[in-house]
Amino acid sequence: MSFHEVRFPASLSFGALGGPERRTEIVTLANGFEERNTPWAHSRRRYDAGLGLRSLDDVALLVAFFEARQGQLFGFRWKDWGDFKSCAPCDKPGAQDQLLGIGDGETDRFQLIKDYASGDQCYGRVISKPVIGTVRVAIGGDEVADSIDYTVDPVTGIVHFTSPPGEGAEVRAGFEFDVPVRFDSDRIHTAVSSFQAGEAPSVPVIEVRV
């Protein structure tokens, strides 16, 4: 897949509108009951970067980034200011934040995951674009050392341990992460008058599977 490991300017994504979407197929039966199903195992996020533009300098920065990605051709990283940590938004990521799995003495690779729980239900989101330098990992309750006990692939979000975690040991991690996205249009419309009138251009961005 065509993807550039570069982040959309965080100063422009701050203030952007967006979030997750699902696709649900609903069939209403003759008796009024519904049957609901979904072809998607995972949600997909959409954003509008236009709301983060505040000046003509911002527009110039956006256009440069758009041209370098060749419109929709190349994906890139996006910081979702409302959801970019393994912990609560106002907390600092810790090594105990998320359960990645249970060691079996043989498996030495674990995927970064963020769980979203409500009541008895929980959704596990695969994190493929962690931010370098923010990942902290613990095995069996003890934090282990980056580059010594494990390494993290920033392109896939896979944690590779030097030695497989022991059988029954919880493998946990905390981290910051980006969302893999692309522009959802091959055109950007901007105008000086838009800012004078208090209007923001629409710059749609959509999550991609990696």
Rank of each mutant, 00 (worst) to 15 (best):
M1R: 11
V6H: 00
E21D: 11
R22N: 12
N31A: 10
G32H: 03
R36V: 10
A41N: 12
R44L: 12
R45T: 05
D48V: 02
G50R: 01
G52C: 01
L53E: 00
F65G: 03
E67N: 14
D80E: 07
D83S: 11
A88R: 13
A88G: 09
P89G: 05
D91S: 15
Q98C: 10
G101F: 05
I102G: 00
G105Q: 10
G105R: 08
T107F: 05
F110R: 03
F110A: 06
A117G: 04
S118C: 10
G119T: 10
G119L: 10
G124D: 00
I127T: 07
S128L: 01
I132G: 00
G133T: 08
V135G: 02
R136D: 02
I139R: 13
G140L: 06
I148V: 15
I148M: 09
Y150C: 04
Y150S: 04
G157A: 04
I158N: 01
H160W: 00
T162I: 00
S163R: 12
P164W: 05
P165Q: 04
P165R: 03
G166I: 05
R172A: 03
R172F: 02
D184M: 02
R187E: 15
I188H: 03
I188V: 15
H189L: 13
S193A: 14
P204D: 08
E207K: 04
V208F: 02
